[in-house]
Amino acid sequence: NITNLCPFDEVFNATRFASVYAWNRKRISNCVADYSVLYNLAPFFTFKCYGVSPTKLNDLCFTNVYADSFVIRGDEVRQIAPGQTGNIADYNYKLPDDFTGCVIAWNSNKLDSKVSGNYNYLYRLFRKSNLKPFERDISTEIYQAGNKPCNGVAGFNCYFPLRSYSFRPTYGVGHQPYRVVVLSFELLHAPATVCGPKKST
C-alpha cells in the first residue's frame, strides 16, 4: 500500500533546468501520483496529453512515469509533440509517434532571462542524422558540413554543433524561455507502482 506522493514538485520547481540537447530525465515510481497538483503548480502555457485524457490521469496506474525536463524558446514548444519536425524535434528531443503522456510548458522569462542575455541554455544546431525517439546526444564533436574532414577544428564548413540561446527579458514571447516537462507513461507487463490517489488504497 503506497502512500508517499510522487515528487513532481522537485521536477517542476527545480531551480535550474537542463539545456534541451542534454535534457534531464527523472524516473518516478512507487508513489501516489496526484496530477491535479500539477494544474495548480504554475499558470501553464501548455498542458497537452496524448493517448490519455488529462482529467482521467488520477484514475490510472502505470509501471513507471518518466519526467523529462529542459528549456526551449516559446515558438519551439509546438515541436514537443508526436510527429513534429524542426531543429528541436530533429536534433535535441524527439517524441515517438505513439507517445503516451503529457507535455507541460510554461513561460520562464522571469527566471531564465537576463538583461545582458542568459547564454547558459544550449541547443544542438547541427547533426548528421535525426534523433530516434527519446535519444539523447550530448556530443560536442565538430560538425563537418563540407567534404573536407574537420579534424576537430572549427572553421570553414566545420561547425561547433551547439548554439546558445541568449534569453533577454525584452524579447518577444516566441523568443522567451519556456520550461518544459514531458511526462511519459510506461505500461509494462509488470506491477503498477505509480497510481492516482483513488487507485492507491
Score class of each variant (00 low, 15 high):
L125E: 01
K198P: 13
I142S: 03
G196M: 11
S116M: 10
V32D: 09
S200W: 15
V181R: 02
T15D: 12
Y178M: 09
N1E: 11
V181C: 05
V71R: 02
R168H: 03
S164L: 03
S116I: 07
L41P: 11
N58T: 11
N130H: 14
S69M: 07
Y66D: 08
F47R: 11
E141I: 09
E135N: 06
G83Y: 11
S139G: 11
V77L: 13
G117Y: 03
F126A: 05
C102F: 04
R179Y: 00
G172Q: 00
R27C: 09
Y171D: 00
Q79N: 06
N30Y: 09
N58S: 13
I88L: 04
Y178W: 11
G196T: 11
D34K: 08
P149T: 06
K199V: 15
S69H: 05
D68I: 04
F17R: 03
N151L: 12
I142G: 01
V194E: 12
F12C: 06
G74S: 03
S69W: 06
F167M: 00
D68Y: 05
G101V: 02
P177N: 00
N58Y: 09
L95K: 03
T201K: 14
R27D: 09
K110M: 08
T63H: 12
D90M: 09
I142N: 03
H189G: 14
Y143Q: 02
F45D: 15
D59Y: 12
N87V: 15
F12L: 10
P197H: 15
V52I: 14
D68E: 02
Y159T: 00
N120V: 08
T193H: 12
L183P: 00
C6N: 06
L187A: 13
L187T: 15
A154D: 09
F44E: 15
F45V: 15
T3M: 11
I138Y: 07
A192Y: 15
N118Y: 04
N4Q: 14
Y171W: 02
F62S: 08
L162W: 02
V37P: 11
P169Q: 05
C61R: 07
N64F: 11
T63P: 09
R25M: 02
K114V: 09
G83E: 09
Y165V: 00
P191Y: 10
P177Q: 01
Y178A: 08
F8V: 06
W106T: 05
K148D: 12
A89P: 08
R16A: 15
N24R: 14
V115I: 14
N92I: 01
G196S: 12
C61E: 08
C61H: 08
S69K: 04
G174Y: 06
T85H: 15
R136Q: 10
K114E: 07
H175V: 01
